[in-house]
Nucleic acid binder design. Structure first.
Lengths: 216, 216
DNA sequence: ACCGGCTGAAAACTTCTGTTTTCAACCTTG
DNA sequence: CAAGGTTGAAAACAGAAGTTTTCAGCCGGT
């Protein structure tokens, strides 16, 4: 009885089990990004479609994910992270700028991060909607982060006297709703406008609502 | 060979075939309004659930509707009609009022018509989203009507000098997106606010965006 | 009272997908 | 080069709904 267990998590084609694992995970995610974001969409995509696009088998799919919804959830977190990182990247550059410019640049950074890849935009604003209580929960969690962020920025605008004081909790939630609503309509092609026009429109909405610039 | 065909579309329990037909149609719709709008929702409702709630059989269901989606489509048109009628009802009363008051009352009327029955609100802002290309088409059609209406009201505000002139086509689309986005979040419980607060918020957004009142 | 349409419940049938299993070919290690 | 893990494709299996059919009983006209 030789040491059979030694081959347990053996190497294969030069890579370790974990590496092969991660590689397939990535291939599944990329296939799903195409299918969900530029193909038939989440609802119309079957497990076998993802497998075919990834060049892998269903058995391997179930080795990586529990359900197809897990794939969507992971993609949702990912596209959100990309947008968030885009905002964080410009944050230090606008620290000492006047509020109007600051908000303009932050908003532009967000939209660039969220929507320069149309597949990302479709997943973030269209495909994740109305899927399940679990996905709703994840969306709500992410939304809470953005509301916090927006609230902090606005509070500072008030402190600096660049916006009239007041309680903007509902207004912040409303603006997030506006972004989601407009972006949805834009992504599905109901609004005929360029990305810049969309950004300008959201900016007008935000500045107009908070009367930023004329701190009465 | 007597006149057998005479019994063709006979009466039954005092009502004609058409009346019995219409009655069942109505019962299916009411059951679905409850299930979609206050129960498990459209996605989680099965044909047998509607039948059970309506006290009818699946065979009768398929005599009235082709698919469960037809039921949703009919309810969507209905709840939209209710909201539209609410707006049309106040229109004559605000003809000669100043713009701020006019828009305030129209918006309040809309929200009252669309959301005083929570089942209606849920169907209009939540359940119809992301269902199918066919439902998307119907949503788009209804949305176009609202954009037309809003554009007409705003053009008149400009004519009267109560808003600065400009091209507001994108802005109108954006506002509709805002309404849908905020109402969605509110209906699913993500925004903790009263109906009046929601109305006030949307009003601030609209007036702020269009600078209504100070026709520069 | 009888005949035939109408009703409502249940069963049967169908289709679509998700999920698991099988199997032959393939790699790596000892 | 033999043994045993690894892979990928296909087949088998399972389950949930949608949809159609059946059938016993009810109703209304002749």
């Amino acid at each position: 009885m030789a040491d059979r267990g030694a081959a347990g998590a053996g190497r294969y084609k030069g890579r370790s089990a974990g590496e092969r694992h991660a590689e397939r995970h990535r291939r599944f995610l990329e296939a799903a990004l195409d299918l969900f974001g530029a193909g038939p969409g989440y609802r119309a995509t079957r497990v076998v479609d993802i497998c075919k696009a990834a060049g892998l088998s269903t058995r391997q799919f179930y080795e990586e994910f529990g359900t197809i919804e897990d794939v969507l959830a992971e993609l949702h977190l990912y596209v959100n992270d990309v947008a968030q990182q885009a905002v964080l990247d410009v944050l230090p550059q606008v620290r000492d700028k006047p509020m109007v410019e600051r908000i303009t640049r932050l908003l532009r950074a967000y939209l660039k991060g969220a929507a320069s890849d149309p597949r990302h935009a479709r997943i973030a604003y269209v495909e994740v909607i109305g899927v399940s209580p679990r996905m709703d929960r994840q969306r709500l969690d992410r939304r809470a982060v953005w509301i916090d962020f927006l609230t902090r920025v606005l509070d500072e605008a008030i402190e600096r006297g660049e916006a009239p004081p007041g309680d903007y909790r509902i207004a912040a939630a409303a603006f997030i709703g506006s972004v989601n609503g407009l972006m949805h309509d834009w992504v599905v092609g109901w609004v005929d406008a360029t990305a810049d026009e969309i950004a300008g429109e959201l900016l007008q909405t935000l500045l107009g609502r908070y009367r930023i610039g004329n701190g009465t």
